[in-house]
Design a protein around this nucleic acid. Structure first.
Lengths: 190, 190, 190, 190
DNA sequence: GTGTAATCGAGACGGTACGTCCTGTCTTCGG
DNA sequence: CCGAAGACAGGACGTACCGTCTCGATTACAC
C-alpha cells in the first residue's frame, strides 16, 4: 500500500488548494498584504469561503504556504567555494528578495504580522526562509575554518545590516554586498 | 509675541488630545496593536470618533505620536566617553526597547505596518527613533577618529544584528551586547 | 411542483424576517416613525444590520411590509348590501384607522415620506391600502346603478374629506361618518 | 414709542435672517426637504450654525417661515362674486399649489412631518395656509345663503378630494376643478 | 470715550446613525 | 465527506449631521 489510506468521503480538491494559493500570490502583488482579505482570496480563487477556513486559519498561513517555495528558491545560490564570492552572492540574492521580490514582500508582511500575532511568529520561526538559507551558506563556510561563535549569531551579524537597512525603509541601492561580505569575513578572522 | 495667534473658532482641546494618546498607549499594552481599533481608542478616551479622525488619519499615526517621546527617552543614554562602554550601553538599551518596552512594541508594530503602508513608512523614516538615536552615539564616536564609511551604513552594521535577532523572533537572552559592541569597534579599526 | 426550488446556498431565515417586521411594528408604537432607525430595528430584532439591508432598502419599506396586512384587514368591512350602512361603516373604519390605529400611524408616516421620496411614493401607489379598499366598496355599490364618474374620482370624493380632516390635524371627533356617507350618496344621485 | 425698545447688545442681523430663509427655500427646490440639513442651510446661507439654532429650533420652522408668505399669496384669489367661478378658481390655485409650487412642496413636507412631530403639527394648525384661505372663500360664499354645516366641515368637503388626490400621488391632470366646484355647490343646496 | 451685552463667524466637541465591508459560522444542495 | 453558494450575527470602518461649546470680532446702547 503506497497511498495514504483515504479515510472516507470526498477527498480534498487539489485544484481548490492550488487556486487559493495562486489567488493569494496574485492578490499580494495586485493590492498588497494589508488589503488582502479571506473573502477576496475566496472570490479570486472561485472557491467557497468555507473551503478556505477548513484548511487554513489565517491569511498569513495561506501566504506563507504560497510563498515559502519561492522564497527558498530565490535565496538558494550556487556555491562556488570562494567564500567572498559566495557571501556576496547570497547578500545580493537577499537584497533582491527583500526589496524587489513578491516572495520577499510576503516575507516582510508576515514578519510584520509576527510582531503582533504569536501564531504567525511560530509559523516563521518553524521555517524561516532567511535564517535557514543563510545558515546553509555559513555552515558550508565554517566547515573549513574553526569558528568562535555560534551559527545563529554569525547569521545575525552577516545579514542583520541588510535586514535592518531594507526593513527600515532605506534605499537598497545604498548597500554594497561585497563590502558587507568582506567586512563579515574580516570579522571571522579576528 | 511668540505665541501663535489663534486663527478662528474653538481651539483644539488639549485634554482630548492627551486622552487619545493615553488610550492608545494603554490599549497597546492591554490588547496589542492588531486588536486596537479607532473605535476602541475613541471609547477608551471618552472622545468622539470624529475628533480622532480630525487630527489623525491612522491608528499608526496615533501610536507614533503616543510612543515617540518614550522611544526617544528609552534610547537616549548617558555618554561616558568610553567607546566600548557607550556602544554597549546603547545596545543594552536597544535590546530592552525592542524586546520588553511598550514603546518598543509600538515601534515593532509600526515597522510591520510600514512594510505594507507607505504612509506609515514615511512616518517612520521622517523620525526613526532607532536610526536617529544610534546616529547620535556614532556621530559622537566618529568625531575623534576618521571613519571610512558613511554614518548610516555604520548604523546598519552596528544595530542590524540586534534588530534582526529580535524581529525574527529569537530570544533576546542570546545576545551579548558587549561582544557586539567589541566586534563593531574592531571593524571600525580595520 | 408548485414549490419554488431552492436556488443555492443557505435559505432566507423566516425567523429573521418576522423578527424585523415585529420590531418595526413595536418601535413605531413605542418611539414613533421619526425616531425609528435601521440600527434600532436591527438591535430590537436581534438581527444583523446587514441582514436588514439585504432584504429592505428603507425603513419605509420595512414598515410598509409590516403594516400592509393590518391595514388591509382594518379597512375591510362586512358588506351588508345597504349602501348607506356600508359607506358609513367604511368611513368609521377609515377614521379609526387614520386616527387611532398603529397601522394607520404607519400609513400616515409613509404618506408623509412619500411626499419627499419617490421610492416611497411608488411603494404606496403600487398598493395603496386606502384607495384599494375604498374602491372595493364603491365598485360593489356601482354594480347596481349606472354611475357617471370614474371610480377613482368617486373614491376621492368619498374619502377625501376624512382624509384631509385627519391629516391636517383636526379632531376626528368632529367627523360624522353617516352625514358624509349620506352626502356622498346624494351626490351620486344627481 | 413705536419701536420695540432694544434691550441691549448687538441687534439681530436682518441680513442673516433673510439669508437663512432664502437658503432654505433654494435648498428645498434643489435637493428636497428630506436631504435638507441645518448644516447645509447654514453653509448655503454663509451663516454660523449657532445663529440658526438661536432663532429657529427645527428645519421645519425655518421652512414654515420661509414659505408661509408665498403659500398665502398663491392661494389668495380675486373674488368675482360668482360662486362657481370663485370656487373653481380657488381649486385651480390649490391644485397648482399642491402639485407644482415650491411653497406647496414645503407645505406637503411640513404636513408629512406633522404626522410624526407634534411641534410641527402645532405650527401648521396655528396657521394653516390651506384651511385659512379656503375658509375665506367659503365664508364669503356663506354670507348670502344660510348654510346648514359648520365652516370647517364645509372646508373639508370642498378641498378634501383634491387634497387626497394629490397627496396620494395621483396625477393632478385627472382633476377637473369646475366639476368639483359644481358638485360642492349642489351639495350646499341640498 | 468706555464699558456692557448680545450678536456674529468659525470651528472643535461628544454623540449617534448611516450604509458598507469583512469576519467566522451556519445551512442548504449537489457531487 | 467535500465543495459552492449564500444567509447569518457581529462589529469596525470612515462619513455626516446633530446640538452644544468656546473662541475672537463686531455692533449696538448706556453711562
Amino acid at each position: 500500500m503506497n497511498k495514504e489510506t483515504h479515510p472516507s468521503g470526498r477527498p480534498r480538491s487539489e485544484q481548490a488548494r492550488a487556486a487559493v494559493l495562486n489567488a493569494a500570490d496574485d492578490l499580494l502583488v495586485e493590492i498588497g498584504y494589508a488589503a488582502m482579505t479571506m473573502k477576496g482570496i475566496a472570490e479570486k480563487a472561485r472557491v467557497s469561503r468555507q473551503t478556505i477556513y477548513r484548511w487554513w486559519s489565517h491569511k498569513a498561513e495561506i501566504l506563507f504556504e504560497a510563498s515559502a517555495a519561492d522564497a527558498e528558491e530565490e535565496l538558494s545560490i550556487q556555491l562556488s567555494g570562494d567564500p567572498l564570492a559566495d557571501l556576496t552572492a547570497y547578500l545580493e540574492a537577499l537584497i533582491h528578495f527583500l526589496a524587489n521580490s513578491p516572495a520577499g514582500a510576503a516575507y516582510r508582511a508576515l514578519l510584520g504580522e509576527a510582531q503582533q500575532d504569536s501564531a504567525v511568529a511560530e509559523l516563521l520561526s518553524a521555517k524561516d526562509p532567511i535564517g535557514d538559507t543563510a545558515q546553509v551558506i555559513l555552515k558550508h563556510l565554517f566547515e573549513k575554518n574553526q569558528v568562535p561563535i555560534p551559527l545563529d549569531q554569525a547569521t545575525a551579524l552577516f545579514i542583520g545590516p541588510c535586514f535592518f537597512w531594507i526593513l527600515s525603509g532605506r534605499d537598497p541601492a545604498g548597500l554594497v554586498p561585497q563590502e558587507l561580505a568582506k567586512n563579515f569575513l574580516s570579522y571571522l578572522q579576528t
